[in-house]
Design a protein around this nucleic acid. Structure first.
Length: 469
DNA sequence: CACGGAATAT
DNA sequence: ATATTCCGTG
């Protein structure tokens, strides 16, 4: 029976309209249909907490790059328990789950520091926009700090893959846009890792960001795309979006409507107006309260102009198609923005680089079938709560309306996730200097011309890549 | 506190 | 698959 957990409820007080309001990029969630992830995953949740200032007293970025400290283990566990409708959750259990991430290389423990873990952000690359851009961008492919120009990246497939779990199946999961036809072939609707060469083999991986400063550097250690900086409070959210109240930590509103977001308020990464640096909120005072009460307050949204649609940029051969080595097709206009990306097969090179021998462990199976994907979570509920105690009761209600979805299909076209939550640039975008800037098109009206969609299709790509550490 | 095996649940 | 639960070992 339902446990009335937050997940169930929380319907977004959000309008049908996409609310930039918050959030986490779609990649932070998995669709319900996604195997093994019908609900938010722990690391997503952690990230979520980390990005909310109101939880700074409970968990916060601290120390090295990607490192965070669980200041109040019990509270974090409690919150997690609430989210998962597991009233008996505790740090011991939560930490067990965390430990499983070690093998997946999503996290690792910072030894010697209590309650301190570290995300393998070193392998994470958020590609909110045209992957290809990233892929072809010299910044990423060559002189980037990632590979240092030579080091064989040992981007483990697992790591990458773990971030790109499978796409929603054709099944019902597709909610929103279900194009019905969405059901693609067996592997049709998967965003294959191999479709993103740069995500795997020669991928730009870096072991460590170059100039790493303190926890909250004014600028990202390195210029993350779109100014992504895990250290910043808004790293995972749209900066100028008002923070949502704690309740927002829970599902619904994280699911922007792809159609809308795609069509409207599309940020333009190359917006020339980005004030450099300006991470705003230098120090979040402490927010001590662990109760997760109302946050919102301090939210000093960094005032950065939202990037606008990258679509207008001419990418030349950087085009997605070129990058992927395949064609991209825009799906039927009627469908909105779905586009298809043919999977590109990567050479064998895709493999992980040097795999540390130490990792052998039970040796997690290495899925040869890299189906990576973006995940979007869903708010379904916490239905069965085996525990008889429902300590958490909430109102229920939810709407799928906001779910964003990514549909990929090699043959039928797919829909890429909207750039819903682009981390606001906190520093000049690398590409900015590399590419011509076209005036940021004003928000595109929803019903825009398909052609527009065409051009912008790639921006819809949102990927998170975790390259090894 | 941290780790990881094992069984079990979703 | 991804946890959740237990639990023994350091």
């Amino acid at each position: 029976m339902d446990c009335n957990c937050v997940s169930d409820l929380l319907l977004p007080p959000v309008p049908a309209l996409w609310t930039p309001g918050f959030a986490f990029p779609d990649w932070a969630y998995k669709p319900e249909s996604s195997p093994g992830s019908r609900q938010i995953q722990l690391w997503h949740f952690i990230l979520e907490l980390l990005q909310k200032e109101e939880y700074q007293g409970v968990i916060a970025w601290q120390g090295d790059y990607g490192e965070f400290v669980i200041k109040d283990p019990d509270e974090v566990a409690r919150l997690w328990g609430i989210r998962k409708c597991k009233p008996h959750m505790n740090y011991d259990k939560l930490s067990r789950a965390l430990r499983y991430y070690y093998n997946k290389r999503i996290l690792h423990k910072t030894k010697g520091k209590r309650f301190t873990y570290k995300f393998n952000f070193s392998k994470v690359v958020l590609v909110n926009y045209p992957i290809l851009d990233m892929a072809n961008c010299p910044f990423f492919l060559t002189q980037n700090h990632f590979n240092g120009g030579s080091a064989a990246p040992d981007c483990s497939p697992e790591a990458i893959q773990s971030l790109f779990p499978r796409l929603p199946d054709s099944g019902r999961g597709t909610s929103l846009f279900d194009r019905g036809t969405a059901a693609a072939g067996p592997e049709g609707d998967k965003l294959r890792l191999d479709a993103y060469p740069f995500l795997s083999s020669g991928a730009p991986c870096y072991s460590k960001p170059p100039s790493l400063l303190g926890p909250y550097p004014r600028n990202p250690p390195f210029d993350y795309p779109w100014g992504f900086n895990p250290y910043l409070p808004g790293a995972f959210s749209l900066n100028n979006c008002p923070k949502l109240p704690p309740g927002s930590l829970y599902p619904s509103q994280f699911y922007p409507n792809p159609l809308q977001s795609s069509l409207s308020q599309l940020p333009h990464p190359f917006s020339s107006v980005l004030p450099p640096g300006e991470t705003g909120a230098g120090e979040r005072g402490t927010v001590g309260q662990t109760g997760g009460a109302n946050g919102t307050a301090g939210g000093q949204p960094i005032r950065l102009s939202l990037p606008t649609y990258p679509g207008s940029l001419s990418m030349g051969r950087t085009d997605i198609g070129a990058a992927l080595g395949d064609r991209v097709q825009v799906s039927p206009p009627g469908t909105g923005l779905s586009l298809g990306i043919g999977a590109v097969s990567l050479g064998p090179g895709t493999g992980a680089g040097p795999q540390s021998p130490t990792e052998r462990r039970g040796e997690v199976k290495q899925d040869p079938e890299l189906d990576s994907d973006l995940e979007i979570t869903d708010l379904s509920d916490c239905s069965s709560d085996n525990e008889n105690e429902h300590e958490y009761s909430l109102v229920k209600g939810s709407s799928l309306a906001n779910q964003s979805q990514l549909l990929l299909d090699g043959k039928k076209g797919s829909m890429l996730p909207p750039i819903t939550s682009l981390p606001p640039p906190s520093s000049p975008h690398p590409l900015k200097t590399l590419l011509p800037i076209s005036p940021p098109p004003p928000a595109l009206p929803p019903s825009l011309s398909p052609s527009t969609a065409l051009h912008d299709r790639h921006r819809e790509t949102e990927t998170l890549k975790m390259l090894h550490s």
